[in-house]
Every structure is written in structure tokens, then in C-alpha cells.
Design a protein around this nucleic acid. Structure first.
Lengths: 139, 139
DNA sequence: TCAAAAGCCTACTAGTTTACTCGTAATTTT
DNA sequence: AAAATTACGAGTAAACTAGTAGGCTTTTGA
């Protein structure tokens, strides 16, 4: 029941891009430096996000990555699904015996609800003021 | 974000014990045969459940395992935590940056709510009638 | 008393996943 | 031309998964 570094670092990248949305392409190097992560590893993580249409890349000097949509239109669920696979506690949930199937479906739906209701706008905003009274608590 | 066979087979064992609660000790062999699982593997899974106080064992011929409490007093959360570890999408959730921390806490609490509100009584009952109109849907 | 049935315990293992590192090629700007 | 940046593929140590294997101990019933 864990989210690996793929999902966690993927969120880190996307929150950074959201914070700097509108400022042109942001390089992975700058994100790697800020968060003390391996640039090479981040490259591998952003590939699925690019293929999945969440970010656009700009090659060459002063290039980098840009969100493909407004931060309010991209959810944590979009990111996690591309990097971690389907949001379900088991593969082939339909093949489970009825009691467990219903339990797993309820877990899946509960997680999905949280992930799909949290946008990059929410995350970037919370990240900026870092305020415990920020609106994220009042949903 | 997966529950491994440990958690899944662990639930299978416990649901079987709940269905036959009051009928004396149930052997792992019978459960392994019914569900076409490795008896030897189930032995390894039930060890944490015994150490955690969820089941009692009865050694010798005609022995087996018995729930340590009534099915209504044991939750899916009790079982999953013993077999899969803490219900949290990350270890060291407090060390995460604020935006992600809040997201992960909300995921954790959502999963916890489902797991802790589902008892073995619910699961065994649903398992018995297998009825789509069973009360599990109406919580 | 003794064999069968059951739990208990330790070790081993093939395959997969995780979390990276390394090297090189292609593209774009200055 | 040089520097900055993305793009792509290969390799790898460590951990985890999902078991298998084998032997020991306890209890019951014939």
C-alpha cells in the first residue's frame, strides 16, 4: 500500500512546474538541485508524464518542461496513475471473491476520490504559503 | 498502491474462520484446499496474526485456528496492518513537504476509514449470502 | 502405544520491482 | 562552435514477493 519514489518525485516535479506555470520552460536540473534529487532519475520519471500528455518538453539550451494544461486542470490522480499504474489495491479486482472485491472497490474509490479532487493548483498553492490554515483543510 | 497476497490470503483465512466461528478449530489445510492455496504459505501468513493476537491456535490432530474475538470485533484494518504494515502511502509521512504530506494524510485516513469500518462479521456475512443487495452497500 | 493430523520453525530461491547510475545522441540557443 | 538541455537505452545492487522444502513438536484416536 505504498506510493514509490516514482509517484512522490513525480508529484514534486509537477508541483514545481505548477508553481512556475507561465514562466516558460523549467529544467529538470533546477528541480533536481532544489530538492536534492538525481536529475537522471527524474528524466526517467517525466517520460511517462510527457507520453501521457501532462507536460510538454522544450529541447535545447534554456529548454525544459511546461505543464500541458492549467494547474487547476491536472489532478494528483492523473500523475499517480501514469507513474504508479491503476489506482486499485489489487489487479483484476473483478476476479476477487465478492466480499473482498467489495472491500477493495471501496478502498479504490476512497483513494480515487482524494486523488481526483486534488489539483496541482491546490498543491502548488499550499506549497507556496505553507500555511496550516490554507484552504486545503476546508474541502 | 497494492495489497499483496499476504494481505489478500490473510483476509481469506480470517473470513473462513469468521464463517465457522463457534465450530471449533479450523485447519489451514481445509482453507488451503477450499481456496486452492499453498498450505505452507498460509502457515507463514497466519504467524503474524497469531502473534498479533487475532487468532488462537490449537495444536495436534483435529487442531487448527480459532478467532481470538468475535467476528464483529475484528476489522479488516487489524488484519491488513499486521500483514502489510502501516496503512500509509509513505513511510515517514511527517518528513514530506507540506503539500504532499497533507495529500498523503488524506489518502491514509480515507483508506483507514474503509478498513476500520469493515468487520469480519460484515465480510463473512457478505461472503455467505453473496447478495448484491446485502447491507455492505448501504453503509 | 503408535500413527496420523495438525501446528511451529528455519532456511532457501526464482523472479520482479525499486531506485538509481552511466553513457551517448539529438536539439536548440547564444 | 560551444553550452545547455532533452531523449534513449543499458546496467545494477538491494529489497520484496510468492512461494518451496524439510524437519520438529503436540495432540488425538484406534
Amino acid at each position: 500500500m505504498k506510493i514509490s519514489t516514482k509517484g512522490r518525485y513525480g508529484l514534486t516535479i509537477m508541483i514545481e512546474l505548477a508553481k512556475k506555470y507561465g514562466e516558460g520552460p523549467i529544467s529538470l536540473k533546477s528541480i533536481a538541485l532544489t530538492h536534492d534529487l538525481s536529475e537522471h532519475y527524474l528524466e526517467q520519471l517525466i517520460a511517462p508524464l510527457r507520453n501521457g500528455g501532462l507536460v510538454k518538453s522544450v529541447r535545447g539550451a534554456y529548454g525544459g518542461y511546461i505543464l500541458a494544461n492549467e494547474p487547476s486542470q491536472i489532478t494528483a490522480g492523473d500523475i499517480i496513475q501514469l507513474l504508479e499504474g491503476p489506482i486499485s489495491p489489487v489487479e483484476g479486482i473483478e476476479e476477487e471473491e465478492p466480499a473482498k472485491r467489495e472491500l477493495f472497490i471501496r478502498i479504490r474509490d476512497a483513494v480515487r476520490e482524494v486523488l481526483d479532487s486534488t489539483t496541482l493548483e491546490d498543491l502548488a498553492q499550499y506549497s507556496e504559503d505553507g500555511d496550516a490554515d490554507s484552504y486545503m483543510f476546508y474541502i
